[in-house]
Structure formats: structure tokens, C-alpha cells
Amino acid sequence: MEPVLALVSGALFTAAIYLILRRSIVKLVLGLILLSNGANLLIFTVSGLTRNAPPLIPEGMLTPLGASADPLPQALILTAIVISFGVLAFAVVLIHRAYEVVGEDDLDQMKDTDR
């Protein structure tokens, strides 16, 4: 399963970088969304996929029987999803506002501050 998820994560990164390099600000934000999802999937994969072994301790025991999945990466990913959701909500409002004041969704029209 790991190689497949690694490839999916790689594909997400590829698509994200392609979208970020486009000139449209809408595609830019779509790229950022894919980028953070690719990162989340990568953390999930790299921490090891353990099937059929939830980290539960049977009643009356102190440790789980045998190997079990590690819940921490999922906690990390959940935190990261919430954070990136907040930031992306801001980014969406930002591009909407930028579109209103500039009147274009073309990044090439937004170079005034670089001069």
C-alpha cells in the first residue's frame, strides 16, 4: 500500500506545483490546497500504515496485544488539516478581495509592489 500512497502524494505535489506556477490566482489557491493535502498524505504514509490493529488495550491489560497502529501521526495530520483549512479560508478571501481591487485574476498584473 505504501508505494501507491507515495505515488499519490507525489502526484498531488506535482499538480500543486504546476498550479502554483500558473498565472491565475484561482489556480494558485487550488495549488496551495493540493500542496497541503499532499503533505498530509505524506506524513500518513511515512509514519507507517498499520491495517487491522487499532491502538486499543483489551480490558484488564496494561499494554496492547502485539503491534498496533500509532495514533500520533493522525493527531498531527488532524491538526495540520485544521490549520491549513484556516489559512486557506484566508487565502480564498484574499484572492477575492485582490480580484476586486485589481480587476484581473492574472498575477502578471500584480507587479506594482515589485518595482
Binding site: L32, V87, F90, L94, A98, V102, L107, T113
Partner: peptide, 12 residues
């Protein structure tokens, strides 16, 4: 306007 243009680069 300048803030929006700057912010897009900063945020990205």
C-alpha cells in the same frame, strides 16, 4: 491594492 498584491506573494 498594493497590500493585496504584496499579500498574495507573502501568503503564497
Amino acid at each position: 491594492r498594493s497590500q493585496m498584491e504584496g499579500a498574495i506573494k507573502y501568503v503564497t
